[in-house]
Design a protein around this nucleic acid. Structure first.
Lengths: 224, 224
DNA sequence: GCGATGCTTCGACCGCGGTCGAAGCATCGC
DNA sequence: GCGATGCTTCGACCGCGGTCGAAGCATCGC
């Protein structure tokens, strides 16, 4: 017997197939209603509702009531990071696919993680942002430099300093096992990519597919 | 219903209290026998044995048979990283401790993660290794530079290139939410710290406690 | 070879937690 | 105000999986 954080409780919340499907759906970043999540998980509304209240109790979800609609979303980028880590182990352990399908390849290159970009493109971007000193590794955090602040402002990327959420954060990437950029800046950059139509979200998947022109634009702005 | 990696299966393996205790014990980095793990988890030997075979089937553990002793250990640093991520969420979500005890503080500063050092000290060390170009962020990996190779060799830190395990890897740190160094180099550095008696493992905990002199030595070598 | 040690397998028990239909509650539009 | 919509709560059912004692199996020392 041991003391400490109740990791079995958290893991068992993710350890039910219906709840895992719900959390996976929420990794897309969009908050969803109980009905949508029930459909996603393949269970009835009462069952979904019971699962959702458990996830809420466990602190994995947040709830935004808008009239009679109740939108459930992941509680934090930390929760998203944990789910990515579990996905990573499941991928590594799971039955080796005979050939990794095109969607898998797309997922490895670029995908949505909660509300920011993940995958090889995202990891490369974070590296370049450090190289160009737009972001600084500092002590135990990632900090936006003053040149970085004006740089992103010039690009039309507005950084909203939200309460309790850092502007920059590292998030571990399961496909390449390196970090990509999370935090409000990470989210704002993904917004920019979608708004500029450089890439589109693939339906019913977390994959982010760049158009040829969009890829060039992204590389010019973030990887040059 | 969705396709994809079976994250519920992996999470449910961690989601049982007995198994969570076992995995937590194995985060100390030492491989343990079934009897030791049964004690750790507070269950009988048959029960422990059943849990261990489930964890083996799920790919979370490796087994090294030595005569009639069978030593179980975590399957990979990736599995260790996932468990750290779950611990991180459990810490964040769990009941706020009235005052974080001294052991918690020690854990935040320096602790063992599987077989390498984690915590603020470890994160600071990785930063400095990048600053000094002993390690290089490259493409999608961390690489040892040639100056790094000779540097560690001078320090008496031998890097064993094991099959299927990278020399350098980033591992997400729950206490500061940044990366520290894993991989065979990360493991070798921890070995050095313990061998030089700069720090000792606290009994029945993952905390690593530096002596005053040891801390100075560590900072001179790795943080200067 | 034979008892000792360390672990796994077998079998039986049991209770936690997932499941859904029916009923209840809250907010909506008009 | 009243029906419609969206969700939660209630209650009853059920089966999966955790549990351990007893028995079995493998390797040890000598």
């Amino acid at each position: 017997m041991r003391e400490g954080p109740d990791i079995a409780r958290i893991a068992s919340l993710v350890g039910d197939p219906a709840r895992a499907n719900m959390l996976n759906a929420l990794m897309g970043g969009t908050a969803l209603t109980a009905s949508e999540l029930a459909l996603e998980a393949g269970v009835s509304l009462p069952t979904a509702s019971s699962h959702l209240s458990k996830l809420m109790d466990g602190g994995l979800l947040t709830l935004a009531s808008q009239g009679r609609h109740r939108y459930y979303g992941l509680a934090s980028a930390q929760v998203a990071g944990m789910i990515e880590a579990i996905i990573g182990v499941a991928e590594a352990v799971g039955p080796k696919r005979v050939r990794p399908g095109p969607r898998d390849a797309a997922m490895r290159v670029a995908r949505v993680c909660y509300d920011h970009l993940a995958g090889e493109q995202a990891v490369a971007m974070l590296d370049r942002l450090f190289d160009k000193k737009l972001l600084l590794r500092e002590d135990s955090e990632i900090r936006l430099s003053s040149s970085g602040a004006s740089h992103f402002s010039t690009l039309g990327i507005e950084i909203h300093a939200k309460a309790r959420r850092p502007v920059c954060r590292a998030c571990l990437d399961w496909s390449v096992r390196r970090s990509h950029l999370a935090g409000t800046l990470g989210a704002a950059i993904l917004d920019k990519i979608i708004a500029e139509k450089w890439a589109r979200r693939e339906k019913d998947s977390r994959a982010v597919v760049f158009s040829p022109k969009g890829r060039q634009a992204f590389e010019r702005v973030f990887l040059a």
